[in-house]
């Protein structure tokens, strides 16, 4: 089947999609957007997190056809047109929150949405918002640092 959707503000189309393909597969293998990651494909790790009509979801649990005509934002859509990193991306680099980096795209999408919703999160809020995103390398401390840093920088900017 053919699936069309808007990804990171651009119209995207894929043909010959098998009906059992996930949104994750279509993004990664058919649309040239492999930033969203395939760590578990069972909704237990968050590495495939994208925003579907603004809402963070596991793209591995969205059938590709369900994304028809909808708006998808992936990690590739976080940075500006000129390639400038968004606040959360820069904070992850600066705070040492990236090791192997496989969990990073999903965490960035989740953290970016958290700060949009709650610009001054407590540590408890950060932990809860990111509790669906597994990281195996960092022990999460630097990820917390990064989100705190991004929140502080966002606060300073306004």
């Amino acid at each position: 089947m053919r699936v069309t959707m808007t990804v990171n503000g651009r119209p995207q189309e894929a043909d010959d999609v098998w009906e059992g393909e996930s949104l994750l597969y279509v993004l990664r293998e058919r649309m040239g957007l492999p930033g969203s990651k395939n760590a578990c494909e069972q909704g237990e790790c968050g590495s495939c997190t994208v925003r579907l009509d603004g809402v963070p979801v596991c793209s591995c649990l969205v059938a590709a056809g369900q994304a028809q005509d909808r708006e998808v934002t992936t990690v590739e859509g976080l940075s500006g047109e000129d390639g400038e990193l968004c606040t959360v991306q820069q904070a992850f680099v600066d705070a040492g929150a990236v090791q192997c980096g496989f969990c990073t795209p999903g965490l960035l999408v989740a953290a970016d949405e958290l700060l949009e919703r709650n610009p001054e999160p407590t540590d408890g809020d950060i932990r809860e918002a990111l509790s669906g995103n597994l990281c195996r390398c960092t022990g999460y401390e630097k990820i917390l640092d990064a989100v705190r840093l991004a929140a502080a920088r966002t606060g300073q900017a306004v």
Binding site: G43, L61, S131, G132
Partner: peptide, 9 residues
């Protein structure tokens, strides 16, 4: 239920 992402859907 599961994770925030799953609770969203």
């Amino acid at each position: 239920v599961a994770s925030p992402q799953i609770r969203n859907r």
